[in-house]
């Protein structure tokens, strides 16, 4: 219990930034800002793996998942104890949305074990169970992904936007005009994005930034041109940007081709997590992992396949500044 409880968000940021200066840790949007390079900051992305994540079987061992999460988060935040880490991310009174990705059904959705591990740590950090909302766009889709719907009562909440609707008014930024999920806007003040590491036939890859397509009512309008600049623009919507504190990409099972629907022949058990507060650096790092797997499988690069995920560079450009995709400014740490 070395850290005092957070006074407010500003205080949190101040301490995180001063810690970053001392430790080389980088806050998310700031890392792409002018002057960042001169300061020597780098975006930290932790890639944590556990070859024994599934033990000897096919299902994920919950205890090993919890240990893997702890290792990733403690490395990212330079803390010795998991509870300290999560108190840097949230504070009592927050209502935390865990945005999962369940499009791929049982085969390749955000794993329940990962969500359970995060919920455990959030509660240890002082978040009430009912103030944790596991959500995606559609409840039935979530159930197909292995989640059990839960609304009301003093338990972790779990449901889709179909249960509460989207906002009537449009949120607009750049090329995007969308209604946002009321789970995002009305139920939660903190957003933790929990995407899955996947290839995507349009965008190239679908990771943390694209996971936010599940927060808008009209994602089908934003798939042309490799989803560029739409993915970056969606993430610029203030209601998303101001809430997003952390991305934990689930690589328990990952896909190097044929996504986003589950295709077992194009998936592999990476048995890992990718964690960062910089969503752009995380997407860049995840993209490189997929490229390495594609090379191993003798597949063309995504660029050669006409699917280079250009939205990542757009998200880092001067107009967006959502993070960095410059490999010289990303510290990717394998643990």
């Amino acid at each position: 219990m070395s850290d005092a409880p957070h006074a407010d968000r500003r205080d949190f940021l101040k301490r995180a930034l001063s810690g970053a200066a001392a430790l080389g840790l980088v806050g998310a949007p700031a890392c792409a800002a002018a002057g960042t390079e001169a300061s020597g900051w780098k975006a930290r992305v932790v890639v944590a793996r556990d070859p024994q994540l599934r033990g000897g079987g096919s299902s994920v061992d919950p205890q090993r998942m919890l240990a893997l999460l702890d290792r990733a988060m403690q490395t990212l935040f330079y803390r010795d104890h998991p509870a300290e880490v999560w108190r840097l991310v949230v504070r009592p009174g927050d209502v935390v949305g865990l945005k999962v990705n369940t499009l791929g059904g049982r085969g390749i959705s955000t794993s329940r074990e990962l969500v359970a591990a995060i919920c455990e740590r959030l509660q240890e950090a002082g978040i009430r169970p009912a103030d944790i909302v596991v959500w995606d766009r559609d409840t039935r889709e979530m159930e197909r992904g292995g989640f059990h719907a839960a609304m009301g009562g003093d338990r972790v909440q779990c449901f889709g936007t179909d249960q509460v609707d989207y906002e009537d008014d449009l949120a607009m930024w750049g090329s995007v005009g969308s209604r946002l999920s009321k789970i995002l806007t009305r139920r939660t003040n903190v957003l933790i994005s929990l995407p899955v590491l996947k290839d995507h036939d349009g965008a190239g890859v679908t990771l943390g930034l694209k996971n936010m397509y599940g927060a808008i009512h009209n994602p089908n309008k934003y798939h042309p041109d490799g989803c560029n600049p739409y993915i970056a623009d969606v993430n610029m919507l203030p209601e998303i940007r101001k809430r997003l504190r952390l991305t934990i990409c689930d690589g328990t099972t990952a896909m190097y081709d044929g996504g986003p629907a589950y295709k077992p022949e194009s998936s592999w058990q990476m048995n890992g997590l990718i964690v960062s507060t910089d969503p752009v650096a995380l997407d860049y790092t995840g993209w490189q992992i997929i490229e390495r797997k594609r090379a191993e499988k003798k597949l063309k690069t995504l660029a050669a396949d006409g699917r280079e995920p250009k939205y990542i560079a757009t998200a880092a450009d001067r107009e967006h500044r959502l993070g960095t995709c410059d490999p010289k400014r990303i510290s990717a740490i394998e643990v």
Binding site: G105, N220, P224, A261, K263
Partner: peptide, 8 residues
Amino acid sequence: GDKERGYC
């Protein structure tokens, strides 16, 4: 792709 929708 499978499980996806067209622009419409």
